[in-house]
């Protein structure tokens, strides 16, 4: 059964890493629903968050293939319940449409949206939330005349407590002990 997975991966910021990773997904015909590249909490380490729909078996296969990429530090695969995630959207709406009802109050209070800019022609509304919440607001605004709509990829943090730094320390440590063991036997 196909379901939604969030793949979070950490890599050295090596040129071409994004191509290498998307190649693995496109070969298997897996659509990337969203992708966000950013810095991570560890300096010099890059983070990619991808949302894909596929089977649990397939996500395991591709995550192992991704982790094999030399410059990839660590790959995490999460189902929706294991992460806290947000997306962000901007809506550019005609001012006339928006002013015609009692909508503005609703938008701000009920949807926790913010107004970023107001001109006689248009207003820009910003909202972060889940994909569903963002879509809901879009359908609400549609009758007012949406001139532009854009939404970001998913950003996510995990519920688990062990952080990347701990993994990095473990990797360095494992290397050190392996080296010491080798030196000992040689």
């Amino acid at each position: 059964m196909k379901q939604e997975f969030t793949i979070t991966l950490f890599s050295e910021n090596h040129i071409g890493i994004l191509s290498r990773i998307t190649l693995i997904l496109t070969r298997r015909q897996i659509n990337i629903e969203s992708i966000t590249a950013s810095e991570s909490a560890v300096s010099g380490v890059h983070m990619l968050t991808m949302v894909v729909r596929t089977t649990p078996e397939m996500v395991q296969k591709i995550s192992r293939q991704i982790e094999k990429v030399v410059d990839v530090l660590k790959v995490f695969v999460h189902t929706s319940s294991e992460i806290i995630c947000q997306e962000m959207a901007l809506y550019k709406v005609t001012t006339r449409g928006l002013m015609s009802g009692s909508m503005i109050g609703d938008i701000v209070r009920k949807y926790h949206a913010t107004i970023l800019e107001v001109t006689p022609e248009y207003m820009v509304v910003e909202k972060s939330g889940t994909r569903a919440e963002i879509k809901e607001l879009l359908s609400l605004l549609e009758p007012c005349g949406v001139l532009q709509f854009v939404s970001s990829g998913r950003v996510a943090v995990t519920r688990q407590v062990k952080e990347l730094n701990a993994y990095l320390r473990e990797m360095d440590e494992a290397h050190r002990t392996r080296k010491e063991a080798l030196e000992f036997y040689n």
Binding site: S11, E12, V70, D71, V72, L73, L168, M171, D172, H175, K179
Partner: peptide
Amino acid sequence: CTYIRSYN
């Protein structure tokens, strides 16, 4: 080279 952090 004997070690690359991201490569095991």
